[in-house]
């Protein structure tokens, strides 16, 4: 006859289980402690690095870009955190300040470009507006794109429109610009700031309806002006790409 499991065996099993659990907890705690320590070290190192190179990061746009990329690769966004050890750097502040200045330039030029501005013009005007005192701090286009992208959080009001070949435009009025619209801007950019339905047919093989729809949309957004005095056909001009407008002092 098989012996039935006694009370002692059950208790023994229970005891073993508890021991295992304790051991597990111990290991977990150990790991956690180690990770905390590592994190602490990492944080200290990063802080040290940031403090040590604070000036370079602030001054040198190339360095700043690399630092940003480094942060991005380890999943840290120095821009999103204004408190904690990142504030030592003031790097967030740097971009916030830029963002505010971008808004200012966009508003100031809205009356002529309808709220669309090339990154080059934006940079020129922004640097001019920052004045002499900030001259030591060079602003790169990369900085501007980063700062402008931060403005997206305010909704569809701000947008960075890629134009290809490393060119960008910053849109500061609400209204989505589709791929078609950026394609039109790219065409206008290499054609003295204007396009037409037949031009788009020639360059992009677009149907008349597609071109018309996209162009009218841009007119209704205040981004394009129409010229009815061309003998052949209606032309659509973009002041934001028109050299004389871009260079105008006022």
């Amino acid at each position: 006859m098989r012996r039935r499991a006694g009370l002692g065996a059950i208790q023994k099993q229970k005891l073993e289980q508890e021991k295992y659990k304790d051991k597990g907890n111990e290991i977990q705690e150990n790991q956690f402690e180690q990770m905390t320590k590592q994190l602490e070290v990492f944080k200290i190192n990063l802080e040290e690095f940031a403090t040590k190179h604070k000036n370079e990061i602030r001054k040198n746009p190339e360095f700043r870009k690399q630092f940003q990329e480094m942060c991005a690769s380890i999943g840290v966004d120095p821009l999103s955190s204004g408190k904690g050890f990142w504030s030592v750097l003031g790097i967030g502040d740097f971009y916030y300040e830029l963002a505010v200045q971008i808004v200012e330039v966009c508003l100031a030029t809205n009356y002529k470009n309808g709220g669309l501005i090339g990154l080059d013009e934006l940079r020129t005007r922004l640097i001019k507006a920052r004045g002499q005192s900030k001259q030591h701090q060079e602003i790169s286009k990369d900085d501007l794109i980063r700062a402008a992208q931060k403005l997206k959080i305010f909704g569809s009001g701000f947008n960075v429109v890629p134009m290809g070949k490393g060119k960008y435009m910053v849109q500061s009025v609400p209204g989505e610009l589709s791929m078609d619209h950026s394609a039109i801007l790219q065409q206008a950019e290499k054609n003295q700031a204007f396009v037409s339905v037949s031009y788009l047919r020639r360059e992009l093989s677009w149907e008349m309806e597609r071109s018309q729809k996209a162009l009218e949309h841009m007119v209704n957004q205040g981004l394009a002006w129409v010229d009815l005095q061309n003998p052949q056909e209606k032309l659509y001009y973009f002041p934001s790409l028109f050299t004389a407008c871009v260079n105008a002092s006022s």
Partner: peptide, 15 residues
Amino acid sequence: PWQYSFPPFFTLQPH
């Protein structure tokens, strides 16, 4: 002013 050399400046704008 820059507008003077901007062709559509001479067409009344619809928008």
